[in-house]
Design a protein around this nucleic acid. Sequence first.
DNA 1: TCTGACGTTTACGTAAACGTAAACCCGAGG
DNA 2: CCTCGGGTTTACGTTTACGTAAACGTCAGA
Lengths: 146, 146
Amino acid sequence: MGEKKAIYTIRDLAREFDVTSRTIRFYEEGDLLHPQREGQTRLYTDRDRVKLKLILRGKRLGFSLAESRELIEMYDPTSDNIHQLLALREKILNRREALQQQLLDIQDMQNELDAAEERCLEALRGSDHRNDEAPAPQRLAQAVDQ
Amino acid sequence: MGEKKAIYTIRDLAREFDVTSRTIRFYEEGDLLHPQREGQTRLYTDRDRVKLKLILRGKRLGFSLAESRELIEMYDPTSDNIHQLLALREKILNRREALQQQLLDIQDMQNELDAAEERCLEALRGSDHRNDEAPAPQRLAQAVDQ
DNA sequence: TCTGACGTTTACGTAAACGTAAACCCGAGG
DNA sequence: CCTCGGGTTTACGTTTACGTAAACGTCAGA
């Protein structure tokens, strides 16, 4: 199976994911990462790298660090407390709903981008025979209103 | 066609979209909304309502207010400056790429939520005959790595 | 007339997510 | 030996997106 013992320095990860070292240390402050230490120096494992990946993806989706921490903990059900597991399941369901809404939002927005782009191109092509269609104000309303 | 002359008070919109009046005024500070005034009082049209909707959807997708303002302006190509239109098209393309990444992120995350949920349910069902599978640390790595 | 619910402005406060600077340590290379 | 490029901590600064409080106007209803 694949090599697993890879060790990363803080710069390695910073470069790979295009964040600053400060950012990575900040995540540790927030209790999201727990690298080993060799003296003063932080050393990151593959596992840490994956967590960082999760955090950054969470960021792209608009999650707070606290939420990302929860998400990470989801994959680590060290707790055998049944009550906690149930609460966790709740959170998962909530997340799923939020994601579903995001999907809808994105689809809507993509459709509107399609339309916007077309209007742009149209405007670029025919800057001379302008104003064949309805005025702009109408369009905005139609775009989103239901 | 549909009734168009609807007028909303700040509270109306606040209630409808579950934000505070403060928030709505803040968007005006940021030049995202421009309601009419009747004396001191702000009055919002359907068009304003749609803009607010766009802003809030932008928020859900992690856009800053500045970005949302740009997005709104996209639908309002009052500028007949061709140069601006080209820049605008650039922005639209960038947006689209970002949204595509978000879609991937969301799909990944939904898959992981499926897995996480299953692990939860499994843990709930068989709290007795525990530890049939690989230990948790492996799972996290497999979930995202690759 | 008083109260209460709504509106307004001005302005300071706050939480999150880092940026940035100071001041330090440490190992390798010239 | 010195410097350079990395690492570290501590701590204050910054931006965004509002919250919150003060202090006020206005109109409807009891």
